[in-house]
Simulated scan of single mutants.
Amino acid sequence: MKLDAEFDPLAEALHALRMTGVFYCRSEFTAPWGVTLPPVTDCLWFHVVTAGRCVLEVEGAEPRTLLPGDLVLVPHGRGHVLRGTPGAAVPAIEGIAHNYVSDRYAILQYGGGGAETVLVCGAVRFDHPTARYLVDLLPKIIHVEPAGAPQAEWMQSTLRLIAAEAATLRPGGEAVITRLSDILVVQGVRSWLENDPSARTGWLGALRDSQIGRALTMVHREPEREWTVASLASELAMSRSAFAARFTDLVGEPAMQYVTRWRMLVALDVLRTEGASVAALAGRLGYQSEAAFSRAFKRIVGVSPGSVKRVSPALATW
């Protein structure tokens, strides 16, 4: 397989960040106010401040003051607190009345009648299981202040559009806000990847490596190939021993263990989304028998492939 010289393995990882919006909300708070947002399994929370200011508190991280134009991500579905003034009570947001515009978009108005803070908030779930490799590496908070970001003007324009739509929800406004919010989430992750030194280590660092990044790309693109350490090393014009050592050092696990894990991630996604038979999927991923595939799947995922087809994607986690 020939790889495009311009291909960016990191871009392909970002492509895996397909999202499903679980919940979006335009929040209009007046001082004094505070709310507690619940943990949401396998989801990423985001908040965009369009007016006013507030403080975000996530356990284990320094509180962050958020100003108009700021975007903040809470990547691991962790519960957290937003408050407009120090010491304000923080009731559970589920107990506050919402005006539901649709089944996943609401308008929330809450507070004591003082200074106003307006946010667009939401929780999104990543559809593709391979996104876990990336999302698991994200910090507890990603705080993007557009004025200081390389993509400042682009983000400011997007935020202005969201603010305008949120101010007076017109026909189609919900769709505009949710789609722009999803774009901002990906942009927020990109900002972290470009600016945080910790994004240059581990699996992400391996993707950036000129040799191991190519090996990962080959496995990602053709998981069904009968890969071996020798064949991967040959593709990169490396010795078998040098490739094996470098792969393990950068990725954190041996090459063939990674190949198997990646195949099972692909299988998990197909089982959840396409409804393929186990036998067909085994052949599609290069296994000579359904039994061999099923054993590998259960070893990596923890359940049989047949059981994944019978439960909802939210329950088939590992």
Rank of each mutant, 00 (worst) to 15 (best):
A237R: 10
R240F: 03
A215P: 09
L250Q: 15
G252H: 00
A237W: 07
A237C: 09
G205L: 01
S231F: 06
L207W: 00
S231E: 09
L180H: 12
W192K: 05
R246M: 03
R200K: 10
A215T: 08
V219Q: 05
G188I: 08
V259K: 10
L204C: 04
S241I: 03
D209M: 15
R190A: 07
T248K: 09
M264L: 11
L193A: 02
S198C: 07
F243I: 07
V185F: 01
E224S: 05
N195W: 02
S210D: 12
W227G: 08
E253G: 01
A206L: 14
I183M: 11
T217V: 05
A245Q: 15
W227N: 04
L204I: 12
A244W: 03
I212C: 06
G202V: 01
R200A: 14
T217C: 15
T201R: 05
E222K: 13
M264R: 03
A230P: 12
A206S: 12
V229W: 00
S181E: 03
D196N: 04
W227H: 14
T178A: 13
M264K: 14
R179Y: 01
L207R: 13
S234P: 06
F247P: 03
M256P: 10
L250T: 04
R190T: 08
L180S: 11
E222Q: 10
L265A: 10
I183T: 04
V186E: 05
G188P: 06
V185K: 02
Q211R: 14
E222G: 13
V259D: 05
T178S: 11
T217M: 12
I183W: 04
F243N: 03
L193G: 13
S239D: 09
T178W: 00
V259A: 05
R200P: 09
I212Q: 08
D249S: 11
V186H: 09
A255S: 14
R214I: 15
Y258Q: 00
A215G: 13
Y258K: 02
F243T: 03
W227R: 08
E235A: 15
Q187P: 08
G205W: 00
G252M: 11
D182Y: 03
L236I: 09
